[in-house]
Simulated scan of single mutants.
Amino acid sequence: MTNEEFHLLKYPIGELNIPQNSTSQQISEWINEIEQFPEAVVALTKNLSNEQLNWIYRPEGWTIKQVVHHCSDSHMNSLIRFKLALTEDMPTIKPYYEDRWAKLVDGNSNDLNYSLMLLKGLHAKLVILLRSLTPNDLKRQYIHPEHGKRFSLEQTIYIYAWHSKHHLAHIKQALKHKGEF
């Protein structure tokens, strides 16, 4: 496998490229994508066997079940980041080792029900919050110490819309290739 082929498997929708400016229409579209994500995951995974849940989306990549569990973990952190930025002045968020979390017992369970319930609840709460944001709220920021950068809530909405599509593409990719690379 070439580096280019590996890169396409790792980033099937392209790498994250955060826009510096966006329109209210774009923000609304991103929020809609975030809202639809849990049901899209359910639709893709509801009839999968344990064998299929263990298919990987690329060489050395996570299994389908790890991707689903990761999304609930990641989006739980997302909701917290939004709330911190809305209630504190330029908070520094806490990063976490997602690769280590994916190896924990709950990240390897064949039972997706709890992570899917969590995703549904998180996204419902998140969408209510996101749709209430004012233009000033969208400019509020937090500091991500891992990157040494500030991120606005406007940018963060985009990041999680991209993240949702990115991992949906991973699940589809694993299913397409039946976990064989």
Score class of each variant (00 low, 15 high):
I18P: 03
Q20R: 07
N21M: 08
S22W: 03
S24T: 11
Q25F: 07
Q25A: 13
Q25R: 07
Q26I: 02
N32W: 04
E33D: 12
E33T: 15
E33H: 09
I34V: 07
E35P: 04
F37H: 10
P38E: 04
P38C: 01
E39D: 13
A40C: 10
V42N: 08
V42T: 13
A43I: 09
L44V: 11
L44G: 11
L44R: 15
T45Q: 08
K46N: 12
N47S: 15
N47P: 10
S49I: 13
N50Q: 13
N50V: 13
E51S: 14
E51V: 14
Q52T: 14
I56G: 13
Y57W: 13
P59T: 06
P59H: 05
G61V: 07
W62H: 08
T63G: 06
I64H: 08
K65F: 11
V67M: 06
H70C: 12
H70G: 10
H70T: 13
C71L: 15
D73G: 11
S74K: 09
S74L: 14
S78Q: 14
S78D: 14
L79G: 00
I80V: 10
I80Y: 06
I80D: 06
F82V: 00
K83C: 04
K83G: 01
L84R: 07
A85E: 00
T87H: 02
T87L: 03
T87R: 04
D89I: 01
M90K: 05
M90G: 00
P95L: 03
Y96F: 08
E98N: 03
E98A: 02
D99K: 07
D99N: 10
W101K: 05
W101F: 12
K103S: 09
K103H: 08
L104I: 01
L104T: 09
V105C: 05
D106K: 14
D111E: 08
L112Q: 04
Y114S: 12
Y114T: 10
M117K: 11
M117H: 11
K120F: 01
L122C: 06
H123P: 02
K125N: 15
L126S: 12
V127S: 04
L129G: 08
L129R: 08
L130F: 12
R131W: 09
S132E: 14
L133N: 12
L133Y: 12
N136D: 14
N136S: 14
D137W: 10
L138R: 12
K139L: 09
H144F: 02
H144K: 04
P145E: 04
P145W: 02
E146Q: 07
G148P: 03
G148T: 00
K149W: 01
F151I: 05
S152K: 01
L153E: 05
L153A: 05
Q155F: 01
